[in-house]
Design a protein around this nucleic acid. Structure first.
Lengths: 343, 343
DNA sequence: TTTATTTACGCAATCGATTCCGTATTTTAA
DNA sequence: TTAAAATACGGAATCGATTGCGTAAATAAA
C-alpha cells in the first residue's frame, strides 16, 4: 500500500499538455513559451510535484548518492568521518549510503557490489583489515567508478586519497615519551597488511633511531583485527609484560587497541603510567575522564570525511576523466594527558 | 563515464530470445521450458548478469531499502542501534540508508522527505529533540509508509515502537543510590518534549517517593539539546551545585549528559563520588576506565535496532495492512561501578 | 480426424522522466 | 506575395525489468 506521488503526467493532464512539454517547462527549456512555463510551474507547485529520483537514476544512470564502506560505524573515528562526509554530501544534494565491512573481505566485496548496482555515483572506501586482494575495487575503478580512499589506503589503486600523517603522529608521540624519560617503549599495531599500521610503526621505529634507542622486534606486537577482538589485545599485552626486559611504555595504533590495552592493564591491577605509560590513537571526546587522563593521538576525522567527499564530488561531477590524483595528508594532534608522564 | 552493466536484453540478444522470456526464465516461471531456463541461467551466469535494482524500484515501487533517521551517528547508543538494524537488514537483503537530523526539526523533515522520495520501503525513526509537530511523520504514515519508532517515540502515531524500559532503569538506579546512603539526589534530563526524558524522570520521582525521600523541583534540571551543547550541561550542573541544599548525587538521562557532567565536575576539581555521586545513561564500552569507574545504565541498543528492523520488515512485507501494533520494551542494565558508592 | 487444451514463447504496455524528431503555426526575409 | 526561418509543442523511443495478453505449435481428448 504505497502512496502515489504526483508525476509529470498529472501535471500534463491537468493542463492539457504533453509530458514532454511539461518536462521541458520544468527544466526551463528555450523551446517553451514563457506563459506555458508559468502555468506549468504554478501547477507543479500547487500539486506539490517532486521529481522521482528513481526514474531519474534509471534514465540518467546516476543517482546523486554516494556509497561509503567502512569497517564499523560504532567507532568514534569512523562515525566522525561519516559525519564529515554527510555534511558535505548534504550541502551538495547527494545522499549517503553507508555499509559496514566489519573487517571482512567478503562483506567488503558484497557491499561494494551492492552499492555499485544501486548506481551510486561514487565511493568512499576505507579498506577492511582482511583485504589483501584488491581486484574488486580495481574492477570498479577501471570501469570508471569514482573512488576516494580514506584512512586505510593502498598504493595499488591510483585515485584520490585522504589520510592523516600518522607517521608524524606516532613519531611525535614516541619522542614525547622519550622526553618524559621512557626508554623501553613498545608498540601494538593492527594488521601488518594495513597501510596505516606500517606507517605508524615506521614513525615509532624512526623516532627510536633518531633518539639513539634500540629498536627491538619483540617490542612490536600485531593484532590482526585491530582490537575488534579483545582477546587479541590481551594476548599482545601479555607478551609484552612477560618479556625479560619489560617495556616501560607502550604505543597503540588504533582506538580499539588503546582501550583494549587500558582494560587489560586495569584488570591486571597495573598502574598507568607508573607501571607502564601509554599513548594511543583515539577519537573519543572523553579521554580526559579516564584514570589517568590519556595522552592520545587524535585524527581530524570529520575534516577527513569532508575532504574525501569534496574530492569525490570533483571526480563525479567532472566532465572529462581525471588523471591527476591527490593524496591529502592531514595532521593529527597529540593531546597531552597524564598517561605519558611519570608521577 | 559510467560502466555498462549487463542487462536482460544482452542475454536475450545472445540467445535469440525475447526479453520477456529471459525475464520469466530467470524468475523460474512455469511458462518457460526447462531447456530454455537452463540456457538463460547459464548465459546469465556467464555474462555476470545482475538485475538492476533501480529499474526494479521504478517498476515495483519498492526499493528493498529502509531509511533510518537518528539525531546523530557519532554516538555509541545510536551507532549500536544502526549496527543492529544493519545486521538484520543485511540478512534479509535490504539496504540501509542512514540520515542524521542533528536534533533539528527542519533537517528531520527534509531527511524524511528525501528518504520517502527515494522510495524506501520503510522507516525507522528516532525523533529529534526539536520535534513537537508530527505532521510530517503522520502524513507519511497515513499514506501507508511503514514506520517503526525507536527510543524517542510519541503516542501520537500508532505504529510499532521499540524502547527500553527507562522508567525501570532510572528507578533502579535511584534506589541503588538511596541504598548506598545518598539522600539528596538530583537529576539532569534532556528536553521536556522528549518521551524518554519524562519517562526517566518519572522513574526518578517514583523511586524517591517509594523511599520516603522528598521530591524537589529545583533538583531537576533540563538540557534542551540533551548534552549536545556542552555549556548547557555546565549550566545545569552549576545550578545544582549552588543550591543551598547541595545534592549529594545526580542522575543523568543520556550519554552526552553523563559525560558532560563528569567533565564539569572534573574541571571544577570535584571528586566523584565523595563530593557528588553519579549514575548516568551510557552505551560506551569504556566506562570501566573512567576515574572512578562509572555506574551506568546501559540500553540494549543493538537488540533494539534488530527488533525495530524485524518489526519494520513485518510491516513492509505484509500483504494486508496491519492494524495491531506492538510496543516492544527491552530491559536496560545497571552496570555497577564506583561512582555511586561512598568511599 | 477434428476439436480442445497445453505448452512455450513474443509483443507491447508499464513505471517516471528525458530527449530526439517531426510538424503546424507564426514570424521574418526576399 | 511567397519562401525561409523561427517558435512552440506533441509523438514516441529510451532507461531495465515485469507482466497481461495473444498465439503458433504440439499434445490430448472426443
Amino acid at each position: 500500500m504505497k502512496f502515489e506521488a504526483v508525476t509529470i503526467k498529472d501535471i500534463a493532464k491537468a493542463l492539457g499538455l504533453s509530458t514532454s512539454t511539461v518536462s521541458r517547462a520544468l527544466r526551463d527549456s528555450y523551446e517553451i513559451s514563457a506563459e506555458t512555463k508559468q502555468l506549468v510551474l504554478e501547477c507543479a507547485e500547487k500539486l506539490n510535484y517532486k521529481p522521482n529520483p528513481i526514474a531519474l537514476s534509471l534514465k540518467e544512470k546516476r543517482s546523486r548518492s554516494i556509497g561509503v564502506v567502512v569497517c564499523e560505524i560504532a567507532n568514534n573515528f569512523f562515525s566522525q568521518i561519516i559525519n564529515g562526509i554527510e555534511s558535505i554530501a548534504y550541502d551538495k544534494g547527494y545522499n549517503v549510503i553507508v555499509a559496514q565491512s566489519r573487517e571482512s573481505y567478503e562483506r567488503e566485496v558484497i557491499d561494494l557490489q551492492f552499492l555499485a548496482s544501486r548506481s551510486v555515483d561514487g565511493l568512499i572506501i576505507s579498506l577492511s583489515t582482511e583485504t589483501t586482494d584488491l581486484t574488486h575495487i580495481k574492477t570498479l575503478h577501471d570501469r570508471g567508478m569514482p573512488i576516494v580512499l580514506i584512512d586505510r589506503i593502498t598504493d595499488e589503486i591510483d585515485t584520490h586519497k585522504v589520510i592523516t600523517d600518522s607517521y608524524k603522529g606516532v613519531y611525535e608521540a614516541t619522542e614525547h615519551l622519550i622526553k618524559n624519560g621512557f626508554k623501553r617503549i613498545a608498540a601494538i599495531g593492527g594488521s601488518e597488511f594495513l597501510s596505516i599500521t606500517n606507517e605508524r610503526l615506521a614513525g615509532y621505529h624512526d623516532a627510536l633511531k633518531a633518539n639513539n634507542l634500540s629498536f627491538s622486534k619483540e617490542y612490536v606486537q600485531h593484532c590482526f583485527y585491530g582490537g575488534m577482538v579483545f582477546s587479541e589485545v590481551e594476548e599482545a599485552m601479555n607478551k609484552l609484560l612477560t618479556l625479560k626486559r619489560k617495556p616501560d611504555a607502550v604505543i597503540t595504533t588504533s582506538d580499539k587497541l588503546t582501550t583494549g590495552c587500558l582494560k587489560t592493564l586495569k584488570r591486571r591491577g597495573l598502574h598507568v603510567p607508573n607501571d607502564i605509560a601509554i599513548i594511543g590513537f583515539s577519537n573519543s571526546d572523553i579521554m580526559e575522564l579516564f584514570d589517568p587522563p590519556l595522552t592520545y593521538i587524535r585524527q581530524p576525522a570529520e575534516e577527513m570525511g569532508r575532504d574525501a567527499t569534496e574530492l569525490l564530488l570533483q571526480l563525479v561531477e567532472s566532465k572529462r576523466p581525471i588523471k591527476e590524483f591527490e593524496k591529502r595528508v592531514l595532521s593529527p594532534k597529540l593531546v597531552i594527558g597524564s598517561s605519558s608522564r611519570k608521577q
